[in-house]
Design a protein around this nucleic acid. Structure first.
Length: 800
DNA sequence: CTCCTTTGTCTTTTT
DNA sequence: GACAAAGGAG
């Protein structure tokens, strides 16, 4: 029997309100998982069959934890209780009913790499010049279409008249066809195809509507349109739908998350009961105050403010360093000290905006001997050797997955090269066969010569593996694959240092398979492949090992740590330059929400760090302190810092409260220009002709008329000086390059004064031609040095 | 056909 | 700076 007295009034209300739609606005750390767990327990105690309950979470890890906690309250619920992610639920449904929408139930799931290979092929066939229209661009357009439930045909009819969109539409049609031929779905398909299954097949929909009578959705603010529709369809029968979320923590817009889903919930369900959880059980008051202050700068949010019974706690620590390596050093040093003083290394987490930032930190952590784990970055399952082995397994599992066949047909080397493959493809096309089917006909394909025998060897091997699978355990089969194909022995001849890593990875994969077999005695190969396709890196984190986690803030969503380090809090990095320069203020708001998520991960201590100089993509950037840090009231920050980290000459104990002093502190460091070593050398593009696109030529003249709109939109104080502009003498020679200069040349040169929409005024310190546009370095009066593309920067020259 | 070198692109964030 | 793709030599 679960104990509901441990819940607060609001939580209890949400738990007991089991009938009808419920919108639970749950701030960070307000115990929503506890609420959801108890809600499931309560339903079960009330006599609701586990079979009728569905709880959807964001990650497998969250699902696992919730399941565990429910079982702790009411005992094992068995497999009939669905606590899973969107993607896993859909796979489960599709594995049963995909044949009703024209797929085989053994369909493969394609990851981003797979999708890209397919798209590459599609572009080749459609003669799309991928220099102009990149596979990536097309894929992301398709992805967001799918997130909004727009199929290929609809996309096509919507894109008429727009050349670029029409091309994408064609690619979308072909891509989708190719996936179907391979009997494969990409990530977005999993949701979209499930929705279309429900829409097309009343019987299936009815089945699931009757089944899932109580539906709960966690992290509702990050659902996309397709997911919303999925849930809406399922809940239509019972209308017992409880969604839990926090609009302030919506950070997945780039992945199609539609914040309107949560903001408009009451419109869709007018009878919805709205419950707010505002008491925070995680952080100290100081940390909460900092978070509240930052998020308060966003408009268009549901007003709420978190409070806690906890005490104020320590001030938020803040340190600025000269360089990023020093920042990393500081963080590692501090964790070592605190950790050795009897702390648990598992109590620390270092969070950052971009994965690339992990490298410096990792180096430092290795040197200090801190037990750590970098979460994210390159996914385990996307490493080459792992993908190779999985390709074998997928080929065995799904006979139509030609993409995988092509991947492994010459891995390990069998002497089957590009020409042979082209001949096979021609044959397949001519006879309307799949690639693998054509392989089986190898002896009938003209002109293959000796290659035919090699191909026969390959197909025989696959056939043997398929047979073996019926009598062997999966783990044994993998062993055979590695031996029989010579995959492992091929490593023997190599002396590369990486070989050891790769062998380790393979070993780790085999361990994962064995673990899978132990926990799923009846699991099939397809089950294993599902699991593999849908794991996030965070799912794999084993918390029983005490180690410090390094990850992006995105990955940290839903987690909490006693000590949190927010690293790289610099304008240009977080918020990123792209966001700052964006026309759409919502993008900056999303970044701010991300900052909010980062801050609220901390339970006891929050340390914010940044560096004045940092290498990004091989170039040194000089960044000012993040505006999000500036939004934290001074009184909440400690700034006492001896030595290198000192950012303001102030007495030890006194936090600055003098606005002018504060302003000073955020002035940029006294660095000159950009000394990056970009290798954008010569040549590049013979033809920049690339027509149509707005290479957004820098304005030739800046008339007052053009300046005005910026003034209106911008709002940084310094803009008022735009009109007065001083202008400096122009250097006689313009920047670097000669000859092959693409793009229009800006009308400013080194030394000129210019104005930027967001950064205000500054001086051009460098200007060099890049492959497609001029790269201009500007030393802004207020924001420090920025390197940007001229077309993008839309700088306005301030004339004398 | 394979290996090695050179060149180009990139990055926010991920199920 | 890191990695994939393309190009060239054996």
């Amino acid at each position: 029997m679960a104990d509901y007295s441990l819940l607060n009034d609001m939580q209890r209300e949400a738990v007991f309100q089991t009938e009808g739609p419920v919108l639970c606005l749950a701030g960070a750390g307000s115990g929503k998982t506890r609420m959801l767990t108890h809600r499931v327990a309560y339903l079960l105690e009330k006599g609701v069959e586990p079979y009728h309950i569905m709880a959807i979470t964001f990650t497998n890890k969250a699902a696992g934890e919730m399941k565990e906690r429910v079982e702790k309250l009411v005992g094992p619920g068995g497999d009939s209780l669905w606590i899973t992610t969107f993607h896993s639920s859909c796979v489960r449904i599709l594995r049963r009913f995909a044949d009703r929408i024209g797929y085989e139930n053994s369909f493969s799931i394609y990851d981003t790499d797979d999708s890209k290979s397919v798209m590459k092929d599609v572009c080749k066939r459609l003669r799309i010049d991928t220099k102009i229209l990149k596979e990536r661009t097309i894929l992301s357009a398709i992805s967001s279409a799918k997130d909004s439930l727009i199929g290929p045909e609809e996309f096509r009819s919507q894109s008429q008249g727009d050349f670029k969109l029409s091309r994408i539409a064609e690619a979308y049609v072909e891509y989708q066809k190719a996936l179907k031929e391979n009997n494969a779905m990409d990530f977005d398909d999993l949701i979209m195809q499930t929705v279309s299954l429900f829409r097309q097949d009343a019987e299936v929909l009815d089945h699931y509507q009757k089944r899932f009578r109580y539906i709960m959705v966690d992290e509702y603010q990050d659902t996309n349109t397709a997911q919303f529709e999925l849930i809406r369809l399922l809940a239509e029968g019972s209308r017992n739908l409880c969604v839990v979320g926090d609009d302030d923590q919506s950070i997945y817009k780039f992945r199609g998350a539609n914040i309107r889903n949560i903001l408009d919930f009451e419109k869709h369900y007018p009878e919805a009961k709205v419950i707010r959880l505002e008491q925070n059980y995680r952080s100290t008051q100081n940390i909460l105050d900092a978070a509240n202050a930052v998020i308060a700068n966003n408009r268009g949010r549901k007003e709420k403010s978190l409070w806690t019974k906890e005490e104020a706690g320590a001030l938020v620590h803040f340190r600025q360093f000269d360089t990023a390596p020093e920042e990393a050093e500081f963080i590692a040093d501090e964790i070592v000290h605190k950790g050795r003083k009897g702390g648990d290394f598992g109590d620390f987490a270092v969070l950052y905006r971009t994965n690339a930032q992990s490298r410096l930190l990792e180096e430092r952590f290795v040197r200090e001997g801190i037990p750590y784990k970098v979460v994210g970055g390159v996914n385990f399952y996307s490493r080459r050797e792992i993908k190779d082995i999985l390709a074998y397994l997928k080929t065995i599992s799904n006979a139509r997955d030609d993409l995988q066949v092509r991947r492994i047909i010459n891995v390990p080397k069998r002497g089957i090269g590009a020409t042979t493959i082209a001949k096979i493809q021609d044959y397949a096309d001519a006879y309307g066969l799949g690639f693998y089917q054509a392989l089986e006909d190898a002896d009938r394909i003209p002109g293959l010569g000796k290659a035919a025998a090699k191909i026969a060897g390959f197909t025989n091997q696959i056939t043997v593996f398929r047979t073996k699978l019926t009598v062997m355990k999966l783990s044994e089969l993998v062993g055979d694959i590695l031996d029989d194909t010579g995959y492992l022995s091929e490593f023997d001849n190599e002396t590369d240092e990486e070989i050891d890593d790769r062998i380790d990875n393979i070993e780790e994969l085999r361990n994962k398979i064995i673990a899978f077999e132990e926990s799923n005695p009846d699991g099939t190969l397809a089950d294993f492949l599902n699991e593999v396709a849908l794991v996030a890196e965070i799912d794999e984190v084993d918390e029983s090992v005490p180690r410090t986690l390094l990850m992006t803030i995105h990955s940290a969503k839903g987690l909490e740590f006693t000590h949190v380090y927010l690293a790289g809090m610099e304008d240009g990095l977080f918020p990123s330059d792209m966001t700052v320069a964006s026309e759409d203020p919502m993008e900056l708001e999303e970044e701010r929400r991300l900052a909010y998520v980062g801050i609220t991960r901390a339970k006891k201590e929050l340390t914010i760090t940044c560096a004045k100089a940092r290498m990004i993509r091989g170039e040194t950037h000089y960044n000012a302190i993040s505006r999000f840090v500036r939004e934290i009231p001074t009184g909440l920050l400690d700034n006492r810092v001896p030595g290198a980290g000192r950012i303001v000459s102030k007495d030890e104990d006194e936090p600055y409260d003098d606005p002018t002093e504060r302003f000073d502190m955020f002035r940029r460091s006294p660095y000159g220009g950009n000394y990056g070593s970009g290798r954008n050398g010569s040549g590049a593009s013979g033809g920049f002709g690339s027509g149509g696109r707005p290479k957004a030529v820098v304005r030739k003249k800046s008339t007052p008329d053009e300046v005005k709109p910026y003034l209106a939109g911008g709002g940084t104080g310094s803009f008022e000086r735009l009109g007065i502009s001083k202008g400096m003498p122009k250097p006689s020679g313009t920047a670097a390059g000669s000859g092959s200069t693409p793009g229009a040349k800006p009308d400013y040169g080194i030394g000129d004064r210019v104005a930027h929409i967001k950064y205000g005024e500054g001086t051009v310190t460098d200007l060099e031609p890049g492959p497609r546009d001029y790269k201009v370095t500007v030393d802004f009066d207020e924001y420090g040095t920025k390197v940007m593309y001229a077309a993008f920067a839309k700088l306005i020259r301030l004339d004398d």
